[in-house]
Amino acid sequence: MTEPARHAGSDLSGRVAVVTGGTRGIGLATAQALAQAGATVVVTGRDGDRAAAVAKELGPAAASYPLDVTDFDAVGTVFRTIAADHGHVDAVVANAGVLEDALLGMIRAELVDRMVATNLSGTLATVQAAARVMMRQKSGSIVVLASIVGEAGSAGQTAYAASKAAVATIARSAAKELGPRGIRVNAVAPGLIRTAMIAHLPEELVQTRIANTSLRRLGEADDVARAIRFLVSDDAAFITGQVLGVDGGLIL
């Protein structure tokens, strides 16, 4: 299949884009979409070998770094290294996240800690590190991964939903702080997307969710990746502080 022609606004040639948690699911699809748009893509992941394999698949310009975003200091160090190695960082997708379901009465403190450590603290650390690099350039675009459940709530996902609501708030607040420095920050809020993170869901629940989706299908990782590609591109040059639902019209 022939790759569709890119118009100037969506062309990411010459841009360096970092995708955290870029080894699978939405992160992997995003890394691929950004590479196809011409960006030099840097993939990070807890599994350094897997991140390296993904970078190899993306092409000779791609790179990888092992990174656990729950290590606040390590995030800063890796971003400084990326900036030193590549000269600049133009787009950052703070995608790394974890999902664990638990009904309200069955939430252990450790589960909350895990949600907060990766989804909230990890995203915040990534935005902070990205901002420190981008401030030098006075330009850049950051996209964080929120969720429809963070916007609408979801039974059995109180801790996860709360952590994702926090992610959306990070985007809104950071956009206000960084806008005067030429840095845009937005969030995407995916609905039910066909990835390994939902493989544990009962088929009956999946079918119910599909029935409650206007477009009557599950989302694909590529659906989210294309939205992210738009947000980091010049086509979205006047968009910041927004939470873009990519949910097919799902009503929870």
């Binding site: 901002a131 420190r132 401030m135 030098r136 702080e177 005067p180 420095r181």
Partner: peptide, 14 residues
């Protein structure tokens, strides 16, 4: 201010 502070930090580092 806080924004100027981050610009200052970047400039000192450079």
């Amino acid at each position: 201010d806080s924004l100027g502070h981050m610009t200052l930090v970047a400039a000192i580092e450079d």
